[in-house]
Design a protein around this nucleic acid. Structure first.
Length: 950
RNA sequence: GCUCGAGUGGUGGAAUUGGUAGACACGUUGGACUUAAAAUCCAAUGGCCAUUAUGGCCGUGCGGGUUCAAGUCCCGCCUCGAGUACCA
């Protein structure tokens, strides 16, 4: 029988599907193990060879764990809401659901060809109403919760209402909006229902508020901070501006500290933890209030008599160096405190900064701009008057949007002061500040600062905070960079909010029993003419509270029929709890049953890309913590271990077009010429970088008449490693690889390419190595020219056993350490040795098949069946490593020398002696040479010590 | 700028706690089998110098250091990649 991988792979894939081989039971005596992949967005271009890398790794681990006797949950699904399907809909009018369905079908076909052991019976799709019912449900739960800082967890909103009724909000410590006023129980009782709702919105974990958002005009939607990269949208690279809008937000800031603390107990890659830590951006310092001097403004500008500017600073110890204050141009006090004389200048400046996009502001960090408001504030200790400026180096979005400027201690303040001629007094001992500010905390000794003189940064900070608290001008404060996450998107293809707006325009939540609220049909997927989101095009998008049904907009009467929310949820909504839904995916009564979550608990291994570090991987931790607070999940971190697989990059090919002509020049001949590199499809180039010119002309007819300037009769292309993408013509399709070499070869090769976590360029040429390994292994089990299946029952030789057990040991260690690349080498060595030994023994070949099966499951199944087994190999136990075959003729010798040298050798006695003597003599020789004496003789005593005789 | 990670043959990459650097594979060269090709198998393959040899010297980005012994540890640089960016 020939090694016909195509037949074999088709046969086993069908077998697994038919028998539900990889179905995981929620009710098993076995220990559970949950291996999770990040589910893909089913894009129209299908999979390329880079996509399955993580899936192959997780599949190997999942199959390995099954061999080890675990009940393994290894599910897969689709993150199927998203922008591309919607944009395609805008262009073609085709409903995104249809595009999505087509793409999913193609994804599934491609995935199936690779022989993954997914439990497809648990598939989820975020765009399926049965699934997003529960995304909407979580939204409702968040809406009905607030964060109690006293108990440090999310609690029911009705408890908060109870507190308000009893004693107002003075003693309530909660994570809430900054503008929340104080009120008493009597005030609360006097509030209208609308006022009560407005107040509660300031406390809810998801709330509707006027917030400064990242608005992308080109995409016509707001974006979350993690979707904005360098001032442009992550998708498409369109400019983004800041804008105030009424939007749903998620109060993730309530969990800032717990999100930081949680990082310590999970085994995630350090770089990823670092980037989450930076993103949350905890900094310790103080908030200080500066009184705005009343003499500097007149009451006609309706400023309350006592107005304060509150600032956050990490250097309260330098407060005596503060010579001015700077507000962000957007700061709400700017218009109120500006004097009539300065009004024109300030307004012009505010307008100018508003026009500049975030990106411009960032691009030009160097130029210093600002304006004086004409107002003055009072220093809380010296009582000196200090001028209040505005400047765009102060960001409205961070801290309070205002700073106390200490030019001697902060470079930006220094530059600003220098530029506008503001004095720069020195408050540091023994430091020269004539050229630049001094910002070294460790070396700080405070001077010219009244009661802080002579103190270090630490001492001074402690003391000044105590003083600030004493005089009521400030307090110690921890500030986070993390902002609440905007949760509204002006898109069609996303989860609708289960929200309608009552006669007073207040948001009202649908009852849980009416979920899912399904997406309405629309004529057009673009915003309406009045600028409303696409759902504004729906004619049936109103809620009847009498019948609890969606009805036509024409019925809106603001008595029983109300308009529904027009925004939809962002992409990350659907992916923030999907891992728990897999535990019980078909449950219509609950997001998952208590039994299911108690059995599966959490994810043991999560594999996916690091690009989600500050998006999905942060939001999902947030939701998990919320679910934990409510007692619905047993763990407040959902993934014990996470691995970031590296990206597989493409190797693009280039032809060089001579400027002004259509002629193209071979790579070696371009030296002096002016050429433009042009992408050539990689499939037109062979492994020695030679271009198939005819095929190229056929592919790009504009070069039909072009002259190809060759070197040594060949056209050699240029090469460059780039991201794999359609537009770069460097995409390698896994289907083609499977067709030519088989899925097992592809799986082995992707692992063999290098360490899982490293990014590496794809090069199809090397795959012949692993492919011929599979053929060699096949031949171990077959004999004669006909290749008939034949293994012997003869006793294996010691050599055979040694080879096998060496392999078992190494492969097991490799899988446990996720060093899948080296175990492929180990397999090759093993098969090479066994064929040299002419090993045909069943006792060796049976365990070998199991050993290889996580990597190359199809061939392993076929061989396993050939060995006479009827059951599938997945249930066979992983072979046990037996040390006796390796160390039989060897012994271990721990050696110490001078109490310093210590090593262990795993060698036969005489060889070990020789080795040790050599090493020790080398040491001795050097020593003796230095001292002019002859070396001593070294005697090695098996067991412990090296004796020097001399 | 800051934070993190990485630099090893022509290429991808191996190398327990510091212990024979370059495993395994690709590529290249030579050979066997073939009318030929493919496939398969065998041999060589870090550089330099020797070749009478089971020979010598140099080699893990650069410069120092610790050690009997450094790709691995320490100090100072260089280069590349990732994240982040006026965060007070």
């Amino acid at each position: 029988m020939k090694f016909n991988f195509k037949e074999i792979e088709a046969k086993w894939q069908e077998y697994w599907a038919k028998h539900g081989t990889f179905r995981a039971s929620n009710d098993s005596e076995k220990e559970k193990f949950y291996v999770l992949d990040m589910f893909p967005y089913p894009s129209g271009s299908g999979l390329h060879v880079g996509h399955p890398l993580g899936y192959i790794a997780s599949d190997i681990y999942a199959r390995y764990k099954r061999h080890k006797g675990f009940n393994v949950l290894h599910p897969m699904g689709y993150d199927s809401f998203g922008l591309p399907a919607e944009q395609y809909a805008i262009q073609t009018g085709q409903h995104p659901a249809i595009t999505t369905e087509t793409n999913i079908k193609r994804y599934r076909e491609q995935l199936d060809k690779l022989g993954f052991s997914f439990d497809w019976s648990r598939e989820v799709r975020t765009s399926d109403p049965k699934y997003y019912k529960w995304t909407q449900w979580i939204f409702i739960q968040l809406f009905n919760s607030w964060y109690n800082l006293n108990s440090d967890k999310a609690e029911d909103i009705t408890d908060l209402i109870g507190l308000f009724e009893e004693e107002g909000n003075a003693n309530v410590k909660a994570s809430c909006n900054d503008d929340t006023p104080l009120f008493s129980a009597t005030d609360w009782a006097a509030f209208s229902p609308k006022e009560k709702q407005e107040m509660l919105l300031k406390y809810r974990l998801t709330y509707l508020a006027d917030t400064e958002v990242n608005w992308c005009p080109a995409l016509g939607t707001v974006l979350a901070n993690d979707e904005v990269v360098n001032g442009v949208s992550e998708r498409g690279g369109h400019p983004v501006i800041r804008k105030k809008m009424t939007q749903w937000s998620m109060r993730i800031t309530a969990y800032a500290q717990r999100l930081l603390d949680g990082l310590e107990k999970i085994d995630w890659p350090q770089p990823l933890k670092d980037s989450q830590t930076n993103w949350i951006g905890r900094s310790e310092g103080a908030s200080v209030k500066f009184k705005v001097l009343e003499s500097t403004f007149d009451n006609s500008r309706n400023l309350e008599p006592r107005t304060f500017i509150e600032v956050f600073t990490t250097r309260p110890d330098t407060i005596f160096g503060a010579t001015f204050m700077t507000l962000a141009p957007e700061h709400e006090l700017v218009s109120k405190i500006t004097t009539p004389e300065q009004k024109a200048e300030v307004e012009a400046y505010v307008e100018a900064t508003a026009k500049r996009s975030e990106r411009d502001r960032m691009a030009d960090v160097k130029s210093i701009t600002g304006a004086f408001t004409g107002a003055f504030a009072e220093h809380p200790f010296t009582k000196e008057t200090i001028p209040v400026w505005i400047g765009d180096y102060v960001l409205a979005g961070y801290g309070t949007g205002a700073v106390m400027s200490v030019p001697c201690g902060d470079q930006r303040d220094y530059d600003f002061a220098k530029h506008f001629g503001i004095p720069i007094p020195n408050i540091f001992e023994g430091v020269d500040i004539s050229e630049e500010a001094f910002a070294n905390k460790e070396k700080t000794i405070i001077a010219n600062s009244d009661f802080l003189n002579g103190l270090s940064y630490k001492e001074a900070t402690k003391k000044i905070i105590a003083e600030l608290e004493k005089i009521g001008a400030g307090k110690g404060k921890v500030n986070y960079r993390l902002r609440d996450a905007v949760f509204s998107r002006q898109r069609y293809w996303g989860e609708p909010f289960p929200v309608y707006y009552d006669a007073e325009g207040m948001p009202q939540i649908l009852g849980e029993e009416h979920l899912p609220l399904e997406l309405p049909e629309v004529e057009k997927y673009l915003p309406t003419e009045t600028g409303e989101p696409p759902l504004g095009n729906a004619t049936d998008w109103a809620w009847d509270i009498g019948t609890n049904r969606v009805v036509g907009n024409d019925l809106i009467d603001n008595k029983t029929v109300f308009p529904l929310e027009l925004n939809t949820m962002p992409g990350w909504a659907g992916s923030s709890q999907y891992f728990n839904r897999y535990m019980d995916p078909h449950n219509d009564d609950a997001i998952f049953s208590r039994e299911a979550v108690n059995y599966w608990q959490d994810v043991d291994l999560y594999i996916g890309g690091s690009e989600h570090a500050t998006g999905h991987l942060l939001y999902s931790r947030f939701w998990q913590k919320f679910m934990f607070d409510k007692g619905w999940v047993p763990a407040d971190e959902y993934a014990k271990k996470l691995i970031n697989q590296g990206m597989i990059t493409g190797t693009s090919a280039f032809v060089f077009r001579e400027e002004g002509t259509v002629n193209v020049v071979s790579k070696g001949l371009i030296q002096e010429k002016k050429v433009t590199p042009i992408h050539a499809d990689v499939s037109l180039v062979n492994s020695s970088d030679e271009l198939d010119i005819d095929a190229f002309k056929k592919w790009q007819p504009e070069y039909e008449e072009a002259k190809f300037i060759l070197e040594e009769g060949k056209y050699i292309v240029g090469r460059e490693v780039e991201k794999m993408s359609k537009s770069k013509y460097n995409v390698v399709n896994p289907d083609e690889i499977c067709e030519e070499y088989g899925a097992d070869s592809l799986r082995l090769y992707e692992m063999f390419l290098g360490p899982l976590e490293q990014s590496k360029p794809w090069n199809t040429a090397g795959i012949t190595g692993v492919h011929s390994f599979l053929k060699k292994m096949w031949r171990l089990y077959h004999s004669g020219t006909e290749g008939t299946f034949s293994v012997s029952d003869s006793e294996p030789s010691k050599e055979n056993l040694k080879t096998l057990h060496k392999t078992i040991k190494k492969v097991e260690e490799d899988i446990e350490n996720f060093s899948f690349n080296t175990s492929v080498s180990t397999f090759m060595i093993c098969v090479n040795e066994l064929s040299a030994q002419k090993c045909t023994s069943r006792e060796i070949l049976e365990p070998l098949a199991i050993l290889v099966s996580p990597y190359a499951p199809h061939i392993a199944e076929e061989l396993w069946q050939g060995l006479g087994h009827t059951q599938t190999i997945s249930y066979a136990s992983f072979p046990k490593f037996e040390a006796k075959y390796i160390t039989e003729s060897s012994k271990e010798y721990p050696i110490s020398f001078n109490g310093k040298m210590r090593f262990t050798l795993e060698l036969p006695l005489d060889m070990a002696k020789e080795e040790i003597e050599k090493t020790v003599m080398a040491h001795e020789r050097t020593q003796q040479q230095l001292q002019g004496r002859t070396p001593k003789k070294v005697i090695v005593v098996p067991g412990k010590i090296v004796n020097i005789v001399g």
